[in-house]
Design a protein around this nucleic acid. Sequence first.
DNA 1: CGACGATATATGACGCGTCATGTAATCGGT
DNA 2: ACCGATTACATGACGCGTCATATATCGTCG
Lengths: 159, 159
Amino acid sequence: MADEATGAGSLDPVELRAWRGLIETTPLLRRRLDQLLTADSGLTGSDYPVLVTLHERGDRPCRSTELADLIGWEQSRLSHHLARMERRGLIRRCRHHADNRVAEVHLTDEGRAVFLNAAQGHSRAVREHFADVLTVPQLEALAEIMETLQRHLAPPVTD
Amino acid sequence: MADEATGAGSLDPVELRAWRGLIETTPLLRRRLDQLLTADSGLTGSDYPVLVTLHERGDRPCRSTELADLIGWEQSRLSHHLARMERRGLIRRCRHHADNRVAEVHLTDEGRAVFLNAAQGHSRAVREHFADVLTVPQLEALAEIMETLQRHLAPPVTD
DNA sequence: CGACGATATATGACGCGTCATGTAATCGGT
DNA sequence: ACCGATTACATGACGCGTCATATATCGTCG
């Protein structure tokens, strides 16, 4: 077994190209877009999904756990991030009247404004650095690939 | 202009599926593999490329900047990470005799051993959660997609 | 009512990654 | 030999994300 245990290891060339490409390129892409977003709105890449989700819900308040589910984050990650966002005045957390454990998350006026102001540019950036660079079949293939990978990561309950 | 500025924004459904799939699934995949790697070797996902690269170079020492280039990391990221790895006894840094600025990075015996011991399992995990889940055409498509994206991120010098 | 388990969220510690900055050594011209 | 520029690397501060744990509240059973 002392072949090339280089991490490349037992992966053949296509597998390796795909794997390394995915694992190396995705963070670069994310970072680039984060930088653009931050430059023109002061938001970070992590703020974005939170703001999108809250905005989509309009006035209906959103409890923390529910928000975490919608975004697909761990609860503690969300808690930390909400703390940072609250400090910056983007959101507010208030206690639920009936159940004092739950925190209802609200977009502040400023949060909403900043988000609305950022959304256009962000979408444009995603197009420019991602969507417009690929063909439609490539986008379809990518979407399917990601869905496949995700299905295998989260084995259906009671696997 | 007050259409759906939801971040979905001006992206059509395929674009959105592909984008969100990529941006959400990749970190999950990375995390899963990191957990497996850590569980069975004590290495983190970030240690891996460093060890691979040093191992591939065999005995030829590697200066810090060169290593950063090979891996594709920022210099300061590598410096921080080498500090952590050095603390754990995986690598060593020594000053170059001729040019006292450069730090030559060496794999320690333990580092090499831990890496060799981890490589098999890691490759297997990559197969299991990634390569084996996709078809060969999907792997090829993915590799090409990533190469395309990367080309567009790093505009050839003197764009 | 009161203890107890479950639920909702917060917090602390720690590794990771970025940006800005610091420090030391070398190079190049004069 | 000297001085400014450049190179190589380290460091500090800070936001991010995870894991383990704390805290408060609620539900329920006796």
